[in-house]
Write a protein that binds this DNA or RNA. Structure first.
Lengths: 335, 335
DNA sequence: ATATATTGTGCGACTAGGAGT
DNA sequence: CACTCCTAGTCGCACAATATA
């Protein structure tokens, strides 16, 4: 049954069996138009008979392209599983694969990127968890390394391509949604200033408030975390102009906000950001701004592969609109 | 600033710069004891000066080992991010990397595994989402492909090594925990029979009930999902012997159970399984059986790398004990 | 000159066997 | 015969230049 670990067939094996030269076999695979149809048919027959498949390693050595893409795991992205699946699928469709690695956050992780490159392990990178002052983009661009980021490079000059979600548009929509439900004092719970996407989301809320003519704009900022969200919200509720509704920078913060609202007995309306799995839970029912993660994954990979196929390909920036998923936390708040 | 994409140094480059032969450079890296200390020092100096790193592709071609491990993403594992991170870290420490790919579930996915192998893309695989009747293990074993599974092969004969969590021990502990809190009618909400880990968890609950002398053992089974968990629990609560406490096969089911309990106004005590992020949420506060995912990831990789280093290495089975994380859902149920 | 098939060469590392002390 | 080092050959593929019709 289980065949002994026999040597896998190579071009030579196939060539011999088909009565042609190695190169003809190679041509059948890489330049079929150069081969006479009858010859091609014969070679293809032998190929499928022997189950021959080109050795990727040998091909990589010759072509200097591994068809492998590096991705660093380690951040606490609540959407990681969906993102990885989307990228893997998109990569697989074009003969590429994702290679995972770990590295310290930010600049301290650069040696890991460099190592992967210097050893010819990957052709390029997908970045995520981009931050203000992130030096990875510039560094990679300087080295001429193909990469695409999920997330803008918040620090100009912008180097390389990226795909991102328009967070400001998301929080604007959230603010308008709350306005339409009758709220006039709409607050914000965010991250500490300087976080790029956090500031972006903050700005969307601010702009919408301005457009809508809302003056009282209670806001509080702190690290991500349910407990922080709870404490910040409690502060706002105890403040001089307590909000009746809250836009939150993340679902995690929003869950904390809901908790504070319950404790205070106020029917605070809350909107979160990410539409992570926790938002849909019964008893949470959190209205949230949904990021089109599958789309992001596909687009990130498309841009990268375009770039890989043609290094002169112009850089691209793709800004995707998020969508609001309404649930009870904003339309029918309890507490 | 940005150097032109100059050719990366190779053994020859280093050899020339150090005034030795290519082979001596290779020896310095792979068999230092064969090189005179002074020569070694000189070569090492040149290596670090030029920033030379061996090309993995060339090495792979020669040694027939890519130091890459395949892992199929696609299931709905709520612990995927932790698992991937743990494996990536463990792999990186020994010079390996994880390669992601997608494939249809079960046997239909085998061509994807075969393709990765035939093209020499990976040295072996990590399997997860193992099921009853899963033919991947036997198939891989027949081909002599190194692999380790997260999850037992539920169908004998067991082929290959695996690491798994003792689900029965987890549900036993959960049952005893509920017993200690005064409950005598402890039910179970599970998956449809035939799911391996589901049956395992069921058996632990059953055994514990038997040991504790509990006769009434209301149980219900259905697909995973909050809504299913809710419906199944509602059935049990409306049945002839309504439970006062419930052991659930997953956190998702448990959340549904809590919902049903609230709706029925009974203070049902509930324990879930996985300790996924939702368990710790305020308002959920779900007691849950925690899987040591980081440990599993590390162990899976350790077994696989041992096997890779020595194909004659005996197969191993590692069964890890889960731990109970008590929260309010069991100690202070509301509803 | 066109279409097709063939040989030679090198990608960058490792393995084997031989030469010099 | 150790110890150290080197030359030659190999992995599987693809690019280039060449041969045959």
């Amino acid at each position: 049954m289980s065949r002994p670990p026999q040597q896998a067939p190579s071009v030579s094996t196939v060539a011999q069996a088909a009565g042609v030269s190695r190169q003809t076999v190679s041509n059948v695979l890489n330049a079929p138009h150069r081969v006479r149809p009858e010859t091609r048919a014969k070679v293809e027959a032998v190929i499928s008979e022997l189950g021959y498949r080109p050795n990727r390693v040998a091909r990589s050595l010759r072509t200097r392209s591994t068809h492998l893409i590096g991705y660093c795991v380690g951040g606490d992205n609540p959407l990681l599983d969906r993102f990885l699946h989307a990228m893997s699928t998109a990569a697989g469709e074009r003969g590429y694969h994702l290679v995972l690695f770990t590295a310290p956050a930010g600049e301290a992780g650069l040696p890991a990127y460099q190592d992967l490159l210097a050893r010819n392990t990957v052709d390029g990178f997908v970045l995520s968890e981009t931050t203000v002052g992130d030096r990875r983009q510039q560094w990679l661009a300087d080295q001429g390394v193909p990469f695409v980021a999920f997330g803008r490079s918040w620090t100009p000059p912008e180097a390389g391509s990226w795909v991102d979600v328009d967070g400001a548009a998301g929080t604007s929509a959230a603010t308008e949604h709350l306005y339409e439900h009758g709220h006039r004092r709409i607050g914000f719970v965010g991250w500490p200033p300087g976080s790029g996407s956090g500031d972006d989301r903050l700005s969307g809320w601010r702009a919408a408030c301005h457009r809508l003519g809302l003056d009282d704009r209670p806001a509080a900022h702190g690290e991500n975390g349910i407990e922080h969200g709870r404490a910040l919200t409690a502060e706002l509720l105890a403040g001089p102009t307590p909000p009746t509704a809250l836009v939150c920078v993340s679902d995690v913060m929003a869950v904390g906000a809901l908790q504070a609202s319950r404790e205070a007995g106020t029917g605070l309306a809350v909107v979160g950001f990410d539409d992570s799995p926790i938002a849909a839970l019964p008893g949470v029912d959190l209205t949230s701004v949904r990021q089109p993660v599958e789309r992001i994954g596909r687009d990130v990979l498309r841009l990268l592969l375009d770039h890989l196929a043609d290094p002169a390909h112009p850089r691209q920036r793709v800004l995707l609109k998020p969508s609001l998923v309404p649930r009870a936390s904003s339309t029918n708040p309890t507490g």
